[in-house]
Each structure stands twice: as C-alpha cells, then as structure tokens.
Amino acid sequence: MSHHIVDFRNVFFRYPDSTEALRDVSFRITHGEAVGIIGGNGAGKSTLLLHLNGHLLPTSGIVTIGDLHLTGKTRQEIRKKVGIVFQNPDDQLFMPTVYDDVAFGPRNLGMEEEDVRQRVHDALNLVNSFALRDKPPHHLSCGQKSAVAIATVMAMEPDILAMDEPAANLDPKSRRLLINLLTTFSHSRIIASHDLDLILDVCSRCIVIREGTVAADGPAREILSDRKLLEENNLELPLSLQRY
C-alpha cells in the first residue's frame, strides 16, 4: 500500500519571529515503517511533527502525505490520515469523560452515534482501557492517560501515527506497557523522543535532526550505537547499549 507514505522534499520552515526551524529537510517514510526522530532540545523535532498534519505549513518545499500535497486546502483531509499524539496527555484529553474524548474525533467526522460507539469501543479495547470509559480524565493515572490519549487518535483510524515524547512522565511499568503496545501496531509510526531505549525497542529506522536539518538517517540500531554521532547531538548511547 504505497499510498501511506510520508514524503518531505526540501522543506524549509521559518517561524513568524524569523527563527529558522527547518532547513532543507528531506526524507521518505513508507507504509508500516516505525521511525524514531531524535535530536537535542530545540533541534526542530516538534516543528517537524506539526507539519505532519498541517498545523504548520512549510515556508517552502513539499510535504506529501499519501497522495496529497499538504496545503491549506488539503489539511482537513490529511488530518484524517495522520493522527498525532501530543506530549502532554492533559492537553490531548480535553473532554470531561474518556468516552466523550475518544468519541470527539469520530463525531467530528460526522459519524452516526451507533458507529461512534463501535469506534470508541474498538479504540479503547486496543489500548486495554475500555473499563475507564466513564471516568473523567483527572481520575486517571499518567499511564492510563497516555493510553487513552493514543485511543483518542486511534479512534480516527489513521494510516499514520505520530507521537511526541509518548513515554514522558510514565513510570517504568507503564512505559513498558506502552512500548509493547506500540510494537503491536502495523501503522506507519513516527515517534519523536529523547527516550532512546524506547526508540530502539519500537523503531527500525532513526532520523537525527540537528539545527533544523537531517544529520543522519538510517537503521535504528546502527545510529543508536554510534556514540560519536549521538554525543554531537546532545544525546548519549541508549542504556541498554551502554553495557557493551
């Protein structure tokens, strides 16, 4: 299914205060790939993610999602294809109950209430959280919140799943559950994170961003064991590789 691709061609992006956040970024992600985006603070990871569903539009260059070029006109269509899970689940979960939150997307797609219920049911089951459906988000633990946050996006049945620091603030057990969950998905996954062990466990490929440019792009295991490259980018070897 070649139409689930993500393609960045010579993408530049400048913020209104004229900070250049992306400079000539090009890469192509094909269907079912799990790609880690890594880099130091302020390297441009979040800016890159915000291009995936058109929150930001490139200043120049072309972003293609599936068979659509990203423009102001196509972004509503593209948002149905790309689901983004933002870093803070408290920002992601804005409705007063879990059910309403997961149903928010499908309802916006104009679905019948019957189908909405099915979507919510499936999405919550996918992340093993169906029992939480009537709770308000502030009664959930961090781990539960991040699981539900993923469900809210999965309920839209996106082709591509993008995540920003999915494991921040999770305790080790919740983090492990999340990693196990992410490895079961067959979607294209794009994960921006400083948690290099998580990237190593989930992703087959890794892109290093530095000062808005692609500093390296290759198999995850290769890049994540390159101590010199990582340290140049304010990163360090994943803990699981440090022993060797």
Partner: peptide, 17 residues
C-alpha cells in the same frame, strides 16, 4: 489543546451524543 482538537477534526462545533 487547540492543536489537539484540530488534529481530531475540530471545526468549531463541540459534538455531543
């Protein structure tokens, strides 16, 4: 939050069921 809402198809109406 607005970004998160847009990402899930928000176009101005808060749906209820």
């Amino acid at each position: 939050i607005y970004f998160a809402m847009l990402a899930r198809g928000f176009q101005g109406d808060m749906p209820t069921g």
